[in-house]
Design a protein around this nucleic acid. Structure first.
Lengths: 178, 178
DNA sequence: CCGCGACCTGTCAACCTGGACATGTCCACG
DNA sequence: CGTGGACATGTCCAGGTTGACAGGTCGCGG
């Protein structure tokens, strides 16, 4: 039941409506960590409110309901963050493809790896300037801006995959030169 | 429906029974890429056989049924591997935690990051010798052993996360020295 | 002042998933 | 020869998840 904890974590930044949270899942967190659509977010917020983890902070126009963490919610988030189970849930289609690269014919595998390397290079070219800008605007005496650590994670992830794809190509090239 | 493609990919290595495939998911693929228990694997194999993607290759003792890929199955696997959708399914509890590190108090965050760094270092210490041994035993003129690319992926993944955790600690340390 | 696009909340049915339950066989070792 | 542990296959159900359906509001540009 990690959706609940994702929502708690997002609300730890500050109060937000179901709509805001839905859009947050369109961004980095939904791309790399956990996906959720509004149809699950609204009911879950309701259940969390029932459980006392969040409260409706304020209501706005168009029936907007802003939710805020309660102390109980913050405690639960902390408990979950610090308590790591032995085995965590993973389901990543991209990584699955990487595991199965070797089930392809060498030519197909090479083409696939080349595509991966290109894709990573393109993402890095997009992400690096954004992070550099965040760093440039940020006063080092202030706390690290929310999301900067996650951004760095994405950056390093792409770098790792990029390096891996190039390494794999080299390694396969030795087998079937051409 | 990636379970189907995970099974196709595993069967591309050679025929296997539901039991064999279940154990494969206990290993690297289940840890990093996609999880599945036998309760989903057996019915899925049945459906795949119905769809003509696999056939029962041979039967063994204890009702063992060994499945093998058909040409149709191999084609479907290739189609899936080479066709990347815009957005792929991701659901990774560990990455979620990394995204939410900054929702913790700085002290908790530091402790968590230290734990992550240690864990990665420990996994690397386990994985590196295994990969080195694979390389030592492997004739470079032969094709890359199945799983070697995936192992390298895991290695680089841990290296990346390790580096990220250290970077994050440094970055947070600048904020609250201690 | 009108309409369109973004905002905002919700439900429902179909499907997927994980863990418990169920059943039985082979084989190596004592 | 008996027994424990690995081998092997399956079902079932509660709960999670997705995508479609549904309904309504605000605010701005024409």
């Amino acid at each position: 039941m990690s959706l609940r904890h994702a929502l708690l974590g997002l609300l730890a930044q500050g109060p937000a409506s179901g709509y805001d949270l839905t859009r947050a899942f369109d961004g980095g967190i939904g791309q790399y960590a956990w996906q959720a659509g509004h149809s699950r977010i609204y009911p879950e917020l309701g259940k969390m409110a029932e459980a006392g983890l969040v409260v409706v902070d304020e209501t706005g126009p168009r029936g907007r309901k802003s939710y805020a963490l309660t102390d109980e919610g913050r405690t639960e988030l902390r408990r979950w963050m610090l308590h790591w189970p032995e085995r965590t849930a993973v389901r990543d289609e991209t990584v699955l493809r990487m595991f199965l690269v070797q089930s392809l014919e060498p030519d197909d595998a090479r083409r696939l790896l080349e595509g991966i390397a290109e894709h990573c290079a393109a993402e890095l070219a997009k992400l690096r300037p954004v992070m550099d800008e965040v760093d440039a605007e940020h006063d080092p005496r202030e706390p690290v801006p929310f999301g900067r650590l996650a951004g760095e994670y994405g950056l390093r992830q792409y770098e790792a995959v990029h390096g891996w794809a190039l390494w794999s190509l080299e390694r396969m090239g030795a087998t079937v030169p051409g």
